[in-house]
């Protein structure tokens, strides 16, 4: 656990020093929201139906940018080998990366949602529930995304390959998170079915990733 925190801390320190990834994630998420608002008109009538989809498209596309850099940054100077030489389990590296990716995702979400609220003059009936759904969805996204980010790190066209292989696998997260967000925004309190899928998805993929991560970064 200490090692995971150490890795995450190192990642975040590097990131906040250069802000390369964070800035592009934030700008990208903002652009997605703004492009949607141009596409749907200034005050769309069915905003309740559009909002969940817009939010999750922004989250996942911007998140993808961050994920694709997550292991790529370790390629510089062969740092990934340096990490693998450390006397820690390979899965600690995975957990550390999950932590730093999650923090970056949350920062991006915390900027995007207020911007969305301002641009669409939107009010959220039950913010706590919304936060809960977003956290669950983001975790599922990051668990699989971090694994596949490591998988694509040594591939020539990794920026192209990652979205193509990540989106089919995280469709359950996107579907369930969009549904749950929609229900929370329209004041329906029964989101148990979606939450159950998000929770199961996160738990299963976290455990599977811990088990197979060492095969991913073998070379």
């Amino acid at each position: 656990m200490r090692h995971c925190l150490n890795i995450a801390w190192k990642d975040l320190k590097t990131e906040f020093r250069t802000k390369q990834m964070l800035n592009s994630m934030l700008l990208f998420a903002l652009l997605v929201v703004i492009i949607f608002s141009f596409a749907f008109g200034p005050y769309p009538e069915n905003i309740d139906q559009l909002a969940p989809g817009m939010l999750w498209v922004a989250f996942t596309f911007a998140g993808m940018l961050g994920l694709s850099r997550s292991f790529a940054s370790e390629k510089e100077n062969g740092c990934l080998d340096g990490l693998k030489l450390c006397p820690v389990d390979r899965s600690d590296i995975y957990v550390g990366k999950v932590m730093s990716n999650t923090v970056l995702m949350f920062i991006m979400v915390m900027v995007t949602v207020p911007v969305f609220i301002v641009l669409f003059d939107y009010s959220i009936p039950d913010p706590l529930r919304l936060i809960f759904v977003i956290v669950l969805g983001t975790l599922g996204f990051v668990f699989v995304g971090t694994l596949l980010s490591a998988l694509t790190v040594n591939v020539r066209a990794r920026e192209l390959l990652l979205p193509v292989i990540l989106f089919p696998v995280i469709l359950p997260v996107i579907i369930s998170a969009v549904l749950a967000t929609g229900e929370v925004l329209s004041g329906i309190n029964d989101i148990w079915a979606e939450v159950r899928i998000l929770g199961t998805y996160g738990a299963i993929f976290f455990i599977v990733s811990l088990l197979i991560f060492e095969y991913v970064i073998e070379d």
Partner: peptide
């Protein structure tokens, strides 16, 4: 092989969410 495992595990979850 890693992706083959991940993709297959996603199948039932995709089905339930659909």
């Amino acid at each position: 092989a890693v992706f083959g495992i991940v993709a297959f595990i996603g199948v039932p979850l995709s089905h339930f969410s659909v």
